[in-house]
Simulated assay, not measured.
Amino acid sequence: MSKKVLVIGGCGRIGNSVAQDIANHTDAEVTITSRNPQQQVKPPFKFLTLDLAALDQLEKAIASKDLVVHCAGPFHHRDGRVLEACIASKVDYLDVSDHRSFYERVVIHQDQAIAQGVTAILNTGIFPGISNCMTKQGIEQFEQPKKIHLSYVVAGSGGAGLTVMRTTFLGLRNKFAAWIDGKWQDTLPYTEREVIEFPQPYGKTGVYWFDVPETYTFADSFPVETVITKFGSIPDWYNHLTWITAHIFPEAWVTSPKGIEFFSRVSYLMTNVTDKFSGIGVAMRVSITGETAGEPQTYCATMVHGNTAIAAGAGTGTIAQLLLEDKLKQPGIYPVEQALSTELFLEAMASRQIEIVNC
């Protein structure tokens, strides 16, 4: 019998890409959810109206599944109810969470997940997700890695929806702790611009400090002294507009729910126009420095994809496929780099025509 997968938030851009990847690479029965009962869904997907606030409905929906994939962000303010219900029902769990605060809220259930035999893998997708596994591949080349520098650039909207726009603006004014020189140091988002050389068609573009889960989890996953994570947009003038939003506009505009919604919708409308010229792709570059046999060593790898949302779907769909095929079982709660081996990662990327290229 086919295994059953529930993709919560599967009608959104990222969630739908995840569901499509699972359908393309497994024979699982995939059910996608939305709060909107009028949502139109095409085969091969089944549809379920689900509001995460209705705990009884959530628990019932999860109990009959083999895997739950949580794609209903933003995750800045999500609690752990979906994961808790999965643990109670002994159902494996994935998510596309993209903020350290969510990881901190749910990792406290580690012992319960282990006791119930539930594998829960967080931070899957593109960044975090594929970026984590690219970094792990590089770390494995060193005897003593010291510094990780991850840069991401997204063209236009990236093929994503309003939720991703909201995620960007939610953290613009909040300091975050970055692991620098062996200690946690407060860092401001969208500061310390660097110009990074990405593969074509992107070339040189600006990136800025940005709070992503990797900034936090890498310090635990790898024996390094420094983790730098920077993000930028194409066209580059979007970076300057975001910098102005983060540093010039009154704080109340950028931190209030109405302000965040306003900036998100304006940005979404703008990218609907510029996507025609910029495309909706993504490029990532990881640079690692350290030592092997006492000698300095540098590692660099890049990845490019023409559609950010599809790439995110591949990152999460990869983990879903491996769980459904019983190739990945690690009871507990982990960021993706602590659960997925480089060998399995590279096999899955090759099957999706995603190439990791050494620079």
Rank of each mutant, 00 (worst) to 15 (best):
L322S: 01
T168V: 15
F102C: 11
L58I: 11
L188D: 06
L170D: 02
D79N: 13
A309L: 02
F75M: 11
L170A: 09
L48V: 11
A155M: 13
A283D: 04
H247W: 07
G129A: 07
Q141E: 11
F277M: 15
G12K: 02
K60C: 04
A350D: 13
M165Q: 08
L150Q: 11
N272F: 05
P235N: 05
S97A: 15
S151W: 09
Q297W: 09
R100F: 11
H109C: 01
P201Q: 10
D326H: 11
E192F: 02
E343P: 03
S233W: 02
T318V: 02
K276G: 08
E343S: 14
I356G: 05
I234Q: 07
T124A: 13
V212A: 14
F169P: 01
P145L: 15
V5C: 12
V68P: 03
Q185F: 05
T167I: 12
G129S: 08
E355W: 08
R193G: 04
P37W: 13
T163Q: 03
D66T: 09
E251W: 03
I8S: 05
L50M: 08
T26V: 07
I180S: 06
S131F: 06
V336H: 00
V304D: 00
G259W: 04
D21M: 06
Q20P: 00
L323T: 04
A120F: 03
Y238H: 08
M270L: 14
G182I: 11
L324N: 00
E251K: 14
Y152A: 13
V336C: 02
F47H: 05
S131V: 12
I114Y: 00
I32N: 00
A301N: 15
G73L: 02
D92R: 06
Y216W: 14
W184P: 03
M270W: 13
A301W: 09
T205F: 11
V254S: 04
F222G: 01
M134D: 00
Y334N: 02
Y299I: 13
L162R: 08
F102G: 05
W209D: 13
L83C: 07
H77D: 10
Y334L: 04
A283F: 03
M284H: 04
G232N: 02
D27H: 09
N174D: 14
K230V: 05
S233A: 06
I22W: 03
F198I: 10
P213G: 13
